[in-house]
Design a protein around this nucleic acid. Structure first.
Lengths: 333, 333
DNA sequence: ATGAAAGCGCTAACAG
DNA sequence: CTGTTAGCGCTTTCAT
């Protein structure tokens, strides 16, 4: 490996001068600069960022890290895109990592990103007690949580009102006359799942419908689970007349299942899904959905992160974005 | 920032001892180790990977970088997942970046990843003459290209047989009796788009159908374009009876457009799409598609990269994976 | 079993 | 305008 010293030696100057050339220090004479640049080129020399970073680690790297729970979930892709665009506008670069809901991988990536000296981190914690993230916050690394907050520590967060979103969806179905409404939930461990379940329950209660636990299924939020659990619900002896699916992949599974059973949406089974993804209009019938502003979540989170990087002492902020019920044909009318 | 020296001081030992504890050197007495570990914990100390790497730079970082053209395209997500899983099995971590088809962003991210001292890179080049990537290959950074190869330099690549895939799709529609087949292509600049167009043309030619350029539309491979161009095609005075869409997002746009026009698939318009994504079965009717093994592409690419990291001198390899025509109901029968 | 000290490649005072 | 030099945080001989 050719190093700065080699260049200096071959060019007959000091290492400092080479460094100056590298960093466009104006105080180098034209000829010296030319000479050095020639040697740099001829030796195919590339400065070691590792060494550079070690030298002045106070300097910003202008890189932020993102830790995503499940890259297969397009909701997080929207968030990521919002972060990316905002970052780019602010001259930051984004390094993303996906931990596929695995605690071990999450820790691995947090460690790496941390030590790769990112200026800050945007993360969706595994749950409200995510220790690895809490530790990083304690160490003073600028962090903004998205989608899910953290209970045991004060930290910036951008989330949506999952309770209200689920409430609205359930209420819509109730308003349309349904009394027997199935719900396919994500893992109860995950805060957003709990909040959505609570919204569902509250709506039932407000309209005098008893909560029937046989109508509620829990899953890992993957499409296959949605498919499987929808089938189970529809094959009950007293099946639901309407279905509320807890995230976008579960919704797709439900559609698949319903088509397979040759049932008609919304006549045989009405459906409202959490998440309004890009394919919602391509489904047949188009999906009625609780729209989460993923891109906006990402944008806000990035902005908050950049503020915090500038000033780590400002008070923490929780931003709660509203969901929006987008009514299309899958719920009937 | 708490550093090794702080730990040493507080524990009343030398920095060397702390380092030994960190690296599980056996020659540390049990009590000393315990004492040091306690301090490490209490101080919340994390070693700086930057410094570690500078110290013995021969050591691998066990990080690979990925440069993705468009993270909104789920095909690349499949590839990424394949890479990720393989990487994890081989104890590598993956840092991903998305350049949204922007040449400037691509260069930015390649620079960053390179200097973040990744052990290698998996990239989908902008085109066959992508200079930034060529330069990195020349420098000796282990690189594997996916989806698209590089013309001017020898480099490992994992691609699919786009020509054959497009040929098969077109032939299927011809076999079903269609003579007037629209094609919505991606940007002609992108190699995969050209190959698919060639496959389409060849199939027409082989079955004695004249190439009609008014039936072919070019676009940026986004859903909106698919929607718009499908509308244009279907509103021609002599509209196609069948449609071949050049990638998954274009397909979604086409479905949306067709539903809006209240046309029936496949009776009014048959459709075959490139890319068999996870939502293919949720569409109504389910989509007939050219399946690209995205996950497999990622897996192979990662394996090849790890081999090259071990031995950068091995000859370059081009892997061409086959596509598979998955017949469902959108093309009629 | 532990410590002292020499760097890894680079930058930034400080001095000239 | 250019050179000397002291580290950045860590690992690793070489002593003890």
């Amino acid at each position: 490996m050719v190093k700065l010293r080699d260049v200096a030696y071959k060019a007959g100057v000091s290492t400092a001068t080479v460094s100056r050339v590298l960093n466009n220090d104006t105080s180098v004479s034209i000829e010296t600069r030319k000479k050095v640049e020639k040697v740099i080129h001829s030796l195919n020399y590339i400065p070691s960022r590792t060494a550079q970073r070690l030298r002045h680690q106070q300097k910003k790297s202008n890189i932020i890290g993102i830790v995503i729970p499940d890259i297969q979930n397009p909701f997080y892709i929207d968030v990521l895109q919002g972060i990316e665009d905002t970052a780019y506008d602010n001259e930051y670069a984004v390094l993303a990592s996906n931990f596929s809901q695995s605690e071990k991988r999450e820790k691995l990536y947090l460690d790496i990103l941390k030590s790769e000296s990112v200026d800050g981190l945007i993360a969706a914690p595994l749950d409200e007690h995510d220790e690895t993230i809490i530790e990083l916050v304690k160490r003073g690394l600028p962090i903004v949580c998205v989608d899910r907050g953290l209970n045991d520590i004060d930290v910036d967060a951008v989330v949506v009102d999952n309770f209200k979103g689920a409430y609205d969806a359930t209420k819509l179905l109730i308003d349309l006359g349904h009394r027997h409404i199935g719900f396919i939930s994500g893992l109860i461990r995950i805060p957003t799942s709990r909040q959505r379940l609570d919204g569902y329950k509250q709506a039932l209660q407000d309209f005098g419908i008893d909560y029937d636990e046989t109508l509620v299924k829990f899953s890992d939020s993957k499409r296959d689970s949605g498919q499987q659990l929808t089938k189970e619900l529809l094959q009950m002896k007293n099946p639901p007349t309407a279905l509320f699916t807890g995230n976008n992949l579960l919704t797709l599974g439900a559609f698949e299942s319903i088509h397979q059973l040759n049932l008609n949406i919304p006549n045989d089974i009405a459906i409202v899904g959490f998440d309004d993804m890009y394919w919602a209009n391509s489904l047949n019938p188009p999906l009625t959905a609780v729209s989460q502003p993923g891109y906006e979540i990402g944008r806000r989170a990035a902005e908050m992160l950049f503020q915090r990087i500038e000033n780590n002492d400002r008070p923490t902020v929780h931003v709660v974005l509203k969901t929006k019920l987008v009514i299309r044909r899958s719920c009937g009318s």
